[in-house]
Design a protein around this nucleic acid. Structure first.
Length: 582
DNA sequence: GCCGTTTTCGGCCCGACTGTTTTCAGTCG
């Protein structure tokens, strides 16, 4: 989709305008960019169908913005933007990653020293050219040196799966301090974004000790935080706010607030920024002021202790963190149509699990036991099929043997009075021509069939869609696994047309998977569209190891970000209902 | 540059911390 490309251009233009000291326009461009990012429809399609009028109906897009969009769709360029780039030909994205450098400092560095990228910056630092510049200084130069070092080792945004466990460990340490009353994760981590820039913590410190000589409790929390193992650099540390860089390559921020402001602060630090702006505007419309300290009517505080009361005071019901992106949640909240988001406890089983019959680590029994321990009613074993040689995929004969083995395991469960059940499926390959690599008479014997694309992924869109269409139309195929093929931070989606995919899924009753691994595929916007079309989805972990079954949490989070409810997700059904569905 | 159950003109979210230009701009979230 062109949406993201154009959004990027608008963000860049906003920065250029900011550098030039233009008032308010940067904000307009940022809003337009954010609006495009959150747009469910392909802007190119909108333009083809509805022309400029359709473009101007997009929130925050007016005449000038639709000029730019139209120009980009036609020529692949935006002149207004190209002019800016010529006047300041620097690698802005790269330089901005250096902590402490913003657009304005970058402009000075280019004009005075011709610095265009981090390499140039490094040279200038070595020659000690930065400190003497007007507006800079010794400390800034030192900070830049460290900033460069961290950019080099930094992976950029980190996967949710990698960072959440680390953040929870730190949270537990904070909670265990006697100076801490309450602590919470905030920021994009609390919203469960698929990648995380930095980790935010919010803390209420205990009431102050009576002794005047005692260091304030909030300060003690700060001291503890900046001394955590793994802290490589303290970006800043004040009375209520501290920021550090970790050895693992990401930043962590901590804020301490009074108990009476906890809800307002949590609401604020959870974001997103766009959601905050929208809620603050609602407060203003009611003659109130919303900040991280509370909701104020004049100087009188009317709410702040809990998030619930903060939302209530500005006329809204509680909004779940995963929805707070200003992509319609406020309108839905006002209209009483917020979704009842699916929860982890709704999940009754995991149908995409691999055993050691193919590339998995553990026996079917061990996988089943793990599922039982997670409180599931069933597990589905869906090993790879013969095309995937690297995973030791199973052929027809092996699948039939496995079928008998699973029957025996289930008989054992039955004999011991356990309700738990192992379902037998397969993750079969969709071949280049759309046929499935396992014979239909064998597929028909299984409880369910997952089909997925693993090879020949670089096909052009028409061919790829014909391939998927044929697979979906196979009456034995129930589920398409990782439907778009993307892997977060690694690989873009295949050339697919998601609208067509939805149409086909509807026609054929095919279930789309939300894969909980690093793929996180479907992505949140797609989940939301699938839900709107009434397409059923399933949240699976694609576990090749028993310990990966905990990834279910991330798939559920992704589903929640896509506004999915229990009724949209079929592995919330009981085993009888599920088999009936298949 | 966009937008409007007050408005088609006059607004645009709000605050902490740092470093340096010593009163506030720049950066960050």
């Amino acid at each position: 989709m062109k949406n993201q490309e154009i959004a990027k251009i608008f963000y860049d233009i906003a920065r250029f305008l900011e550098i030039d000291g233009v008032a308010f326009k940067p904000y307009a461009y940022q809003k337009a960019a954010a609006s495009l990012e959150g747009l469910k429809d392909d802007v190119a399609q909108l333009y083809i169908k509805g022309g400029r009028k359709a473009l101007e109906e997009i929130p925050a897009i007016g005449k000038a913005m639709s000029d730019h969009i139209e120009e980009y769709l036609k020529t692949g360029k935006v002149k207004f933007y190209e002019e800016f780039k010529k006047s300041l030909p620097v690698n802005m994205d790269e330089l901005l990653r250096v902590e402490g450098l913003g657009p304005k400092k970058i402009k000075v560095l280019y004009q005075k020293l011709g610095i265009k990228n981090i390499k140039d910056l490094e040279k200038a630092v070595k020659k000690h050219q930065i400190a003497p510049l007007f507006g800079f200084g010794e400390t800034t130069e030192k900070n830049i040196i460290q900033g460069i070092e961290f950019v080099k080792q930094n992976k950029g945004r980190v996967l949710l799966q990698e960072i959440l466990p680390i953040a929870r460990e730190v949270l537990e340490k904070l909670e265990n301090l006697k100076e801490v009353q309450k602590a919470s994760l905030a920021g994009s981590l609390r919203r469960r974004k698929e990648t995380i820039g930095d980790v935010d913590f919010l803390v209420v410190s205990s009431p102050e000790a009576s002794s005047p000589s005692a260091k304030k409790n909030s300060e003690k929390v700060m001291d503890f935080f900046v001394a955590l193992p793994g802290v490589k650099k303290i970006w800043g540390k004040g009375g209520t706010k501290a920021s550090v860089h970790m050895a693992q390559g990401f930043d962590m921020d901590l804020r301490v607030v009074p108990a009476k402001s906890y809800g307002a602060a949590l609401q604020y630090f959870t974001g997103s920024q766009a959601h905050n702006i929208a809620t603050r505007k609602m407060a203003i419309d009611k003659g109130l002021k919303l900040s991280e300290y509370g909701v104020f009517s004049g100087s009188k505080m009317i709410a702040g202790k809990t998030e619930q009361e903060v939302y209530k005071s500005i006329g809204l019901p509680y909004i779940e963190p995963e929805l707070r992106e200003d992509t319609g949640e406020i309108t839905a909240a006002l209209g009483g149509s917020l979704p009842a988001l699916i929860e982890l406890k709704d999940i009754k089983g995991d149908l995409h699990c691999h055993s050691n019959w193919n590339g998995g680590e553990h026996s079917i029994e061990v996988m089943a036991k793990t599922a039982m321990e997670r409180g599931y009613e069933y597990i589905g074993i869906s090993d790879h099929s013969k095309t995937l040689k690297i995973e030791n995929g199973l052929n027809e004969g092996q699948l039939l043997k496995q079928h008998e083995a699973i029957k025996k395991i289930n008989a054992k469960f039955l004999a011991s009075g356990q309700k738990f059940r192992v379902l037998h499926g397969v993750e079969a390959d969709i071949l280049k021509d759309g046929s499935i690599d396992i014979k239909n008479e064998v597929l028909a014997k299984l409880d369910y069939v997952i089909a997925s694309v693993h090879l020949n992924t670089k096909m052009e869109k028409r061919q790829m869609m014909a391939r998927i269409e044929k697979a979906m139309k196979n009456p034995n195929v129930d589920i398409i696994a990782h439907p778009t093929g993307r892997i977060v931070n690694q690989r873009d989606e295949y050339q697919i047309d998601f609208d067509t995919m939805l149409k086909l899924a509807k026609e054929t009753g095919t279930i789309l998977e939300i894969n909980s691994s690093a793929r996180l595929d479907l992505r949140d916007l797609y989940i939301r569209r699938a839900k709107q079309e009434g397409i059923k989805m399933i949240i699976n972990t694609d576990s090749h190891h028993k310990d990966q079954m905990v990834f279910m949490e991330y798939g559920v989070a992704q589903a929640r970000r896509g506004w999915a409810e229990k009724k949209d997700i079929i592995n919330t059904l009981s085993v009888e209902e599920l088999l009936e569905y298949f």
